[in-house]
């Protein structure tokens, strides 16, 4: 065996080794996703139901006036498409981060954490892997939506890529932070009720903010405080080749805070995992 010997220090990892590790984590996530067809189908059916049924039904009820980035009146389904894209990422972020800890995947979290690479790097890589999977879902959704008449300019498809990375990171980091913070939300139904639905409905995903303000000032304030609103708006503007700077700023800030929180939570000496006995319970 030529492994590292006692006492002597093995060479610190170079940039190449970091890249190999990141690539391996993303590769595995993609492989798993491809093998889990039901998950793929579920991830697509959800936004498509909204697009085909909900949007069609509400098309005549909800009129959307001309607001940026739109230059003409748009159909309701065109309006909610960015919100549905963000919803795909919201589900994906919560699912991958939470299942990591609570489901069958828990063992995989442990496998990940015995890697000698720094923990912040492992967690960030894991998030990026989740984002990569969400990109796949979003582009397939957009392809189907195009066939349904949602036809943003072609450059929009390219322009949303960086926006999707930022929003995906933010939502994934939030999921990771939640997974370590909240013990009660152990099953996905709890997450649906207490995180996904409130975030999705109290945002600009389904109706423009000015309409919400007409209805209720309190609700409007909640929407403005909801980071998901900014994910939706960043994607909405990017889809038409525009940069919504406020949203980018808010998302970047939230990503940093959530990610720092998640890394802190997974820190072996400070984190909540330590106090609670870690994934796998207090252990025997």
């Amino acid at each position: 065996m030529v492994g590292a010997t006692a006492g002597s220090d093995a060479e610190p990892y170079g940039a190449g080794a970091y890249l190999i590790c990141l690539r391996g984590i993303v590769w595995r996530e993609a492989l798993r996703f491809i093998h889990q067809r039901e998950r793929f189908v579920a991830a697509l059916v959800r936004p498509l139901v909204w697009l085909f049924i909900f949007a069609a039904g509400f098309r005549s009820v909800l009129g959307v006036s001309i607001i940026p980035p739109y230059e003409t009146y748009v159909l309701y389904e065109v309006y909610i498409t960015p919100g549905l894209i963000a919803m795909i990422q919201l589900f994906n972020g919560m699912q991958s981060s939470l299942s990591m800890v609570y489901d069958r995947e828990m063992g995989n979290m442990r496998t990940l954490l015995i890697s000698p690479f720094p923990r912040w790097f492992l967690l960030t890589s894991k998030l990026l892997a989740g984002v990569a999977v969400s990109l796949l879902q979003v582009y397939v959704f957009l392809a189907i939506a195009w066939w349904w008449g949602i036809e943003p300019p072609l450059y929009g498809y390219l322009a949303i890529l960086p926006a999707l990375v930022v929003s995906g990171l933010m939502l994934g980091a939030l999921g990771m932070l939640l997974s370590s913070l909240i013990k009660q939300l152990e099953n996905f139904a709890g997450i649906m009720n207490f995180v996904i639905f409130p975030m999705f409905f109290a945002s600009s995903a389904l109706y423009p903010l000015w309409r919400i303000k007409e209805a209720s000032n309190v609700l409007y304030d909640i929407c403005v405080l909801n980071p998901f609103t900014y994910a939706v708006e960043l994607i909405r503007f990017a889809l038409y080749g525009q940069l919504h700077e406020v949203s980018l700023g808010v998302l970047a800030g939230c990503t940093l805070i959530f990610l720092a929180g998640a890394i802190y939570a997974y820190n072996p000496s400070k984190g909540f995992i330590a106090r609670r006995g870690g994934p796998g319970g207090a252990g025997a």
Partner: peptide
């Protein structure tokens, strides 16, 4: 292979 990547093996 996944595990090898986690240990930075080329």
């Amino acid at each position: 292979k996944y595990h090898a990547a986690l240990h930075g093996l080329p």
